[in-house]
Design a protein around this nucleic acid. Structure first.
Lengths: 145, 145
DNA sequence: TTCCTAAATAATAATCAATCTTATTTGTCA
DNA sequence: TGACAAATAAGATTGATTATTATTTAGGAA
């Protein structure tokens, strides 16, 4: 029972690439596909290691650049983790983070309430808010045990 | 009219060092003093450049290690900025961030409402929350102009 | 279909932040 | 004061990311 990206997501990806005048290359396709299959916020290097199994000639730079390009056109999200490499997340729905300060793990969660947080009145004149994210730092279940 | 750290803050700093059995070295004192004077969330390198003016022999490693030590004993806060070096913040009161995605600036703000955010019910069993931070990403006033 | 061109890639070098190693120096306490 | 553990300086090392450049290729035009 493997998670299946489904043709819909893949098609949407191709459409967005076209919208942005990005060429569809085998590298981009395989990178996107592998990222979709993942559920652990992989780093560029993790994706690189996986993809290299199928395309031994691919370079790390291509993987990293491609993932950043994906972030620019909005098909993936980039997560910055304290003290570590960037992580890429195919889940682009607005979400928030649990950050375990023991093991460093980042866990996504959804919260309608957090999505709808009110921006403090005093700020509205000084800053145009585009997105909101709540980061809860603490200890995850595994580390508590 | 320069911002003055004041003897109280300095004394509190010395006390906390003693509590943690940290030796009081000239390097630690000057690094702490310069960080207190700053209001721009400097990086380790920024502090290094400033301190080097007074102690030409100080090494980057010492500045960086010292700042991390300060973070461990809770006298400074560490901020992770998307795609950049760690930044250090002498303001350890709970606070939140505006992150301008244009110029990269981080602006602190206080919000009682955000401090008191409710943790979603479903999470409480899975995660022990220690601190909460809201990051509002958008465009700052200067960049809007 | 074939050709052309701009875009993308691979390979490598360079950069930047952060950490480690080791010899030396220095706070702190007895 | 003297001893010793802690801290520092200097330089090397690691790891992630970005830049450079020559080569290849996707995709539109003829």
């Amino acid at each position: 029972m493997q998670k299946n990206p489904g043709p819909n997501k893949t098609q949407a990806f191709l459409d967005i690439c076209h919208q942005h005048q990005l060429k569809i290359t085998p590298q981009r396709e395989v990178i996107y596909r592998e990222l979709l299959k993942s559920d652990t916020h992989p780093t560029a290097d993790t994706i690189y290691q996986i993809v290299k199994g199928k395309y031994p000639n691919i370079s790390y730079d291509t993987v990293n650049r491609t993932l950043l390009t994906f972030a620019e056109i909005g098909v993936v999200d980039v997560i910055e983790i304290f003290g570590g490499a960037k992580r890429f997340d195919p889940n682009i729905k607005n979400h928030h983070h649990l950050h375990c300060i023991q093991c460093g793990k980042i866990i996504d969660f959804q919260s309608r309430a957090y999505d709808n947080l009110k921006v403090p009145k005093g700020l509205r004149a000084k800053f145009r808010v585009i997105s909101k994210r709540v980061v809860l730092r603490g200890i995850c279940k595994a580390c508590l045990a």
